[in-house]
Every structure is written in C-alpha cells, then in structure tokens.
Nucleic acid binder design. Sequence first.
DNA 1: GCATATTCGTGATGGATTTCACAAGCCGCG
DNA 2: CGCGGCTTGTGAAATCCATCACGAATATGC
Lengths: 211, 211
Amino acid sequence: MPRRVSDSTVRRLSQYLRVLEDLERSGAATVSSEDLAGGGGTTAAQVRKDLSQFGSFGKRGLGYPVVELSSQIRSILGLERRWRVVLVGAGRIGSALFAYPNFTRRGFDCVAVLDSDPAKVGGWWGAVPIRPAEELEEVVRELGADLIVVAVPPDAAQRVAERAVAAGARGILNFAAVTLRVPGHVPVTNVNLVMELEALSFAVTHIGKDA
Amino acid sequence: MPRRVSDSTVRRLSQYLRVLEDLERSGAATVSSEDLAGGGGTTAAQVRKDLSQFGSFGKRGLGYPVVELSSQIRSILGLERRWRVVLVGAGRIGSALFAYPNFTRRGFDCVAVLDSDPAKVGGWWGAVPIRPAEELEEVVRELGADLIVVAVPPDAAQRVAERAVAAGARGILNFAAVTLRVPGHVPVTNVNLVMELEALSFAVTHIGKDA
DNA sequence: GCATATTCGTGATGGATTTCACAAGCCGCG
DNA sequence: CGCGGCTTGTGAAATCCATCACGAATATGC
C-alpha cells in the first residue's frame, strides 16, 4: 500500500467496482485490464497501475478474477462494513441521495435525519423519524454515527460540521457551497451541483477553441 | 487564452465567482489574490496563475476589482447567456438540482421535463408540464435546448444521450452511473453520488495509514 | 518627490500523475 | 515438453499541475 493514494485513483477504483459487479451478474470469471478500462473512460495501463498500488490481483495471460477482484476493491474502499450515516437537512438532496438503491447496497445506512424546520420535525423519512437539529450531538453519540451528510444552507454548514465533528463524526459529505474548516483527520467530500453545471457551461462555450 | 484549461482550474473559477459575489454584496471594491484564495481552500499563487490564463485583471499593489472580475469570470464560464435545459427523468435528483436558487440565478432555465412513467406524465414540475419520454427529440428541437440533464436509470441513460445529441443537444449533465459514449464535441459532466460516498469511505478507512 | 509597503504576473522549479514499452509469467495445444 | 499467443506488473519517459520566487507596477506616507 503506497504512502499516498491519489483521489483520481480512488474514483477509478469505484468505477472498476461498478463494472466488476456487472460482470459478476453476467457470470464472467475473469476480465482483462483492457475490458475493465473499456467500461469507464480510461486505459488498460491506467487500470494496471491503479490496481498494482494495492497488490497483484491478476494472472498474466489470463486477466483478473472477477469475484475476487471485486471483493478486494470493496475491501480497499472500506465497503466491507456498514456505515452509520446521519443526514442533516431533510431537503431534496438528501432525499435524492438516499433514494439511490446502491446507497444501502454498498453499506450505507441512514440512522437519523435532522432538520431545523419545526414543520418537518416529527415527520418521517421512510422509517426514520425527523428530529430537531439541536439534537445533533446527542444523535451522533447515541447512535455511534460515522458519517455526516451536510445538506443545509451555506451559512449553517460550518456550524453543523463543527458540532458533528466534536460529537465524534469521522467523515463529512458536504452539499453546501462553502469550504468547510475541520480538523485534518476528518475527511470532507464536497458535492456542488451548480459548480458541475458551470463546468459544463464552460466546456460547451469553449468547444473548438482549444486544440 | 491557453490551448487547454484544466478541469481543476475551471472548478476553482467557479469558486472564485462564489466568493466574488459575496464580496459584491458586502460592497468591497477590490480583493487580493490572498483573500480570494482564503475563501476556497487554495493559495494566492494558484489564484493568480488561474486568472492569468485568461488575462490581466488585477492592478499591482491593489488587487482585483471585485465587480469587473466577477463579470469577467462569468464571461469565461459562459454564464452571460441563458441556457435552455431539458431534464430527462422527473425524479428526486432533478428535483434537487432545480431547487438550488443558484440554478436559475446563474442562467440555467428548465424548459422541459420528460419522464417515461405514464403516471408522472401530465403532472407539473413547477410551471413546466411533464411530457412523455418519447417526445425527447421533438422537445429538444422545438425549444432549441442546449443542455440535457440525464437522470434516468443506468440502462436507459446511453439511449437518452444518443437521442438528445442527435436532436441537437450540446452538453450533458449525467447523473446515471454509467460512462456515456457521445461524439467528442459534446461535453459530458458526470455526477455520481455513490462514488463520492465511496471516496469518503476510503478516506475515513485509511486515516493515519498514510503520511 | 521619494522611499516604502503591497500585490500582481510569470518564468523556473518541483512533484505528481499518466502514458509508454517491455520483460516476465501463464495457458493451451500439438 | 516446448512453443506461441496473451496479459500482467513495472521501471522509464513524458506530460500535467501546483508551488516558489522575484521583477514590475501601483499606492501611501511624509
């Protein structure tokens, strides 16, 4: 295992896993780096470099064993356990996130939902009751939550993050359009849909202006 | 304008714009690269390098004029026009996307919503009627749509993309967990929430194992 | 007007990531 | 058993990206 694994490598591993699970369903026993690359938009050499950072999973002349590699990648990504996730902000984004079938299938369980709107508190989010935002620390501690999903307005996000971390949260998925300041040992993953749209706008605008 | 602008640069421009708009509201006349960097998680040198790719917008000893730089970045990102966006798949993600206030504020108009579920067709999405998925080409052509948001199940995504591109769509925001194959002149931006969660899972799992 | 303190723009440097190229290993077949 | 066709694993090269360092230009104070 190398000192530092790049973010792009991790994202690609996630893609390989998707392809591998398709292959599992289709019953293939082995897969070549070429075919693994074909599924996502990368190259065979890239696949081999990525995987070689974590071990030698393939057999020369044959390829990678689908089931075993799939399991190895799950282990690398930390998906062999279940994660207890607390959603802060019972809005549409959280709703979209939890609607993904893969969300639970990959080991993420929504153990609590919080919201600061009294009109929402007391309602239900599937089988999970919506509790008041003030109970954040309590909820995190009682349920032993691992991850926090921050889906609140930008001006409330920093405070939510701080409180969650203080109460023991170990990672943050942040949908708010602000840069969260948290201790270095707490990873933050940012998702900003407007930024994605703007990147698309840029790309479409500059078509053909580059080589 | 350089031959090739890196994706990270574009994303940072988007961030600078956010900070600049805050500064506009607070009435500041100029801003230093230092302060622009402080808002997002980057450095002053990075800010200057990014901006210098598109021109000399600052004054030495003084900084960048807030209003003008804001306008310049909007122009660079292609946000000085309005984009006609068609949403395919009237589910939760599209709902979340369009709920962002910045969505319309930054120039994106949802001109049509399509869905293959007959139960949804005929309903309303705010002021926009939900039309049957078969009318995709028709809708794109009639309304002169620019961008397509693909928010359908993975196995339907490729076909939607192909049909949209054939009908004249110029860019795709893809929420489906598949790699779309489209002609090279049609940019695709992928958003995959499960992948983000898995990246977070990896990061939390490997805390302290790296330098 | 001049010295001084800021701050930008940018070539040079360093590091990280991707691509290339090929030796080493595995399988199947005659 | 030996040979030929594949495919992996990996050093080396190339490319891309971020950081550094500093000259040039502007403002401010006296």
